[in-house]
């Protein structure tokens, strides 16, 4: 393949990564924005979402589409309740102290991961996509015979990957409407701005915290259910989404939701394109160092407001 079609292919792969990443990182960002805590177990909620999707899809067993829809509806809910339980049993008792929360969520990370290893096992298992037709893409070129277009070999995507992108956009718009236009969103924003004042006005801040923690984990689980027909469910799959979500949330500015979306698109596309053209290890080293440097020299993130 020539460079042009190759780049288009890489961008399409990148767009799928970006869509899933935007959902996952949005979960982390909402939790940090409202509760001011870093959830290190976020990647494991993603993993549990994928594993539950496999369980649900295999136990429904009918047409793949039916199992997938069931998984998409049920798995994020279960993960959300699981996370709300973690909040109620652990985080509430340590009073959301930032450092102790990090240690406790590291503990939760191991508990979720190792419990999955004990029940689901060490194998990676696929979920069948509901539909998966290959779509060949045309490429336009100004050649010897004037303007022409043809279908380069290997330049194609699948209908499912396009569905993932569309689904992520729909979910994120719904989320935005829910935060800005509904009573629940208002309560959430009030808690974010000043939890003491919110409490004084009769908002049950602790319940809001549990709900927000569950919502964040549920968003990660939605991303995981969408990704599981492309990648496979595996008990160690939570590591990369955690690191990438961290990167996205930091680059986007801690707690800034529009920043998170922009950064997810940027990082997802860059990840897709870089991993097509460069060795993945070198790309990862470079990306990790760049993000660390951003945090060192611009602690509020690229789009965050400066303190001065």
């Amino acid at each position: 393949m020539e460079f042009g079609p190759h780049l288009l292919l890489a961008s399409l792969e990148g767009a799928t990564t970006a869509a899933v990443l935007a959902l996952t990182a949005m979960g982390l960002s909402i939790v940090f924005g409202v509760m001011r805590v870093v959830n290190v177990a976020h990647g494991e909620f993603y993993m549990v979402g994928a594993v539950l999707a496999w369980f649900i899809a295999t136990s429904v067993g009918a047409h793949p589409a039916l199992g997938f829809v069931a998984a998409l509806l049920i798995a994020p809910l279960l993960v959300g309740f699981l996370a709300a339980g973690v909040d109620r049993l652990i985080l509430r008792h340590i009073n959301y102290d930032p450092e102790r929360t990090i240690v406790a969520t590291i503990g939760t990370l191991y508990i979720l991961q190792q419990t999955t290893l004990m029940t689901f096992g060490p194998d990676a298992r696929p979920v069948e996509p509901p539909f998966n037709s290959r779509i060949a893409l045309p490429w336009f070129e100004w050649g010897e015979n004037g303007f022409e277009f043809y279908f380069p070999w290997g330049l194609s995507t699948t209908s499912y990957k396009l569905f993932v992108i569309a689904a992520a956009v729909v979910i994120l718009i719904t989320l935005w409407l829910a935060i800005t236009r509904t009573k629940a969103g208002l309560v959430m924003r009030a808690t974010q701005q000043d939890s003491d004042m919110a409490q004084a006005f009769g908002i049950p801040v602790k319940t809001v915290y549990s709900a927000v923690f569950g919502l964040g984990a549920g968003l990660a689980a939605i991303g995981a259910v969408l990704v599981v027909p492309i990648q496979q469910a595996y008990y160690l799959m939570g590591h990369d989404p955690l690191l990438l979500s961290f990167i996205v949330v930091i680059i986007g500015g801690l707690g800034s939701l529009p920043g998170t979306i922009i950064a997810a698109i940027l990082i997802g596309m860059a990840d897709g394109i870089i991993s097509v053209f460069f060795t993945p290890t070198l790309a990862k080293i470079f990306a990790t160092l760049v993000v660390a440097m951003v945090l060192v020299f611009r602690p509020k993130g690229l789009l965050g407001k400066s303190t001065s």
Partner: peptide
Amino acid sequence: AYLLVVGVTLVLVTL
């Protein structure tokens, strides 16, 4: 899954 004890210990110690 022996790392489970690492997780449980971390949570219990913090709590």
